[in-house]
Computed example of a mutant assay.
Amino acid sequence: MSSDREVSDREIDAWVIGVGPGNPKQITVEAVDAIRRLDGVILLDKGESTASMRRLRTDLLDEYAPDTTVLVVADPPRDRRPEDYAAEVRRWHAARVDAIAEAVDRFPRPAGRAPVVGFLVWGDPSLYDSTLRLVDALAARPGWAVTVHVVPGVTSASALAAAHAITANRIGRPVHITTGRRLSETAATGEDQIVMLDGAEAFRGAARPDDTIYWGANLGTPDEVLISGPVARVADDISAARADLKSRVGWVMDIYLLRRPDAD
């Protein structure tokens, strides 16, 4: 194929790269290789309150691909407590795709090929992250030609289990992964629950007092906090830790495992 072929202004080679939950040592060799082939990276940024989150990703780029162009894009605002949750997420995702499209339009166009554009995803792109949906929505727009590649990453679920030195499941038994918003629907099953995205601390109402909670926040970062014990004993400690991180660091990314106190 000729190296000077005509390339559409809206043709891109998109790499969605899992970079782990925050520890720069938990990025995979595959992810490093992918980062080094990028022409540029789009970082959706939530503002000064989460500046340290942005620095964690730019530090990765400084270490592994210092010459890569970085476009920081303001993440559109989102209503965290809407009446219609699904509709609000759809609206927010559409606004994010608009912002990404505008950023891609600003990328320099290499001669004879599409630009290689990266998206650095916390944890793994397949688990409670919207980046792949956004890239797919971009690809579905008229006039766009997007080739998508995905690089898996260390998940916060596996990082949580490692930090607490526990297994995520018990012998021959399942583990259910859910969100705080949906925990009340499955907490009564008696199975182990890994819970993500629980800013409202749903475990207070859904868990039994003697259930064990293995909680972790900002895993792998210098601000990592780990708490474990019966829910009744440590719930207030978790609330205090969340408040401290929010005040001191500006953001909280937490996850926990709930476990009934019966035999393995």
Score class of each variant (00 low, 15 high):
Leu38Thr: 09
Val73Ser: 00
Glu88Arg: 12
Pro77Ser: 13
Arg78Glu: 13
Ile35Asp: 07
Pro82Leu: 08
Asp45Met: 00
Pro66Lys: 11
Glu30Tyr: 10
Arg96Lys: 13
Val32Met: 08
Glu63Asp: 08
Arg37Val: 05
His93Met: 07
Arg54Asp: 01
Leu61Lys: 10
Arg54Trp: 00
Asp59Ala: 14
Ala74Arg: 11
Asp45Glu: 08
Arg36Leu: 00
Asp45Gln: 01
Thr50Gly: 09
Arg90Trp: 02
Val72Gln: 10
Val41Met: 05
Arg81Lys: 15
Thr69Met: 15
Thr28Ile: 07
Asp45Tyr: 00
Pro66His: 10
Tyr64Gln: 07
Glu88Tyr: 10
Gly47Ile: 10
Val32Gln: 03
Asp59Met: 07
Val70Phe: 05
Arg96Glu: 15
Arg57Phe: 03
Val70Pro: 03
Ala31Glu: 04
Leu56Ile: 03
Glu48Thr: 07
Asp33Lys: 15
Arg57Gln: 05
Val70Thr: 13
Trp92Leu: 02
Asp62Ser: 15
Thr68Ile: 08
Val89Thr: 12
Met53Gly: 01
Ile42Met: 02
Leu43Pro: 03
Ala51Asn: 04
Arg37Asn: 14
Leu44Asp: 02
Arg90His: 10
Met53Phe: 06
Asp67Gln: 11
Arg57His: 02
Asp84Pro: 09
Arg91Ile: 07
Ile35Gln: 09
Arg57Ile: 00
Asp59Ile: 03
Ser49Phe: 04
Gly40Lys: 05
Trp92Phe: 14
Ala31Val: 04
Asp62Phe: 01
Pro82Gln: 10
Glu30Trp: 08
Arg80Asp: 15
Thr68Ala: 11
Ala34Pro: 04
Leu71Tyr: 02
Leu60His: 07
Lys46Glu: 06
Arg91Ala: 15
Glu63Asn: 08
Arg55Ile: 01
Ala34Ile: 08
Val73Lys: 01
Glu48Pro: 01
Lys46Phe: 00
Glu48Arg: 13
Arg54Glu: 05
Thr69Gly: 04
Glu48Asn: 06
Ile35Ala: 04
Pro82Trp: 01
Val89Tyr: 11
Thr50Trp: 12
Arg37Ile: 03
Glu63Pro: 00
Asp84Lys: 12
Ala65Asp: 02
Arg96Thr: 07
Pro76Val: 04
Gly47Ala: 10
Asp59Lys: 09
Ile42Ala: 02
Leu71Gly: 00
Arg54Thr: 12
Val29Asp: 09
Ser52His: 03
Ala94Arg: 13
Ala31Phe: 04
Ala74Asn: 10
Ala31Ile: 06
Asp39Gly: 08
Ile42His: 01
Glu63His: 12
Thr69Phe: 03
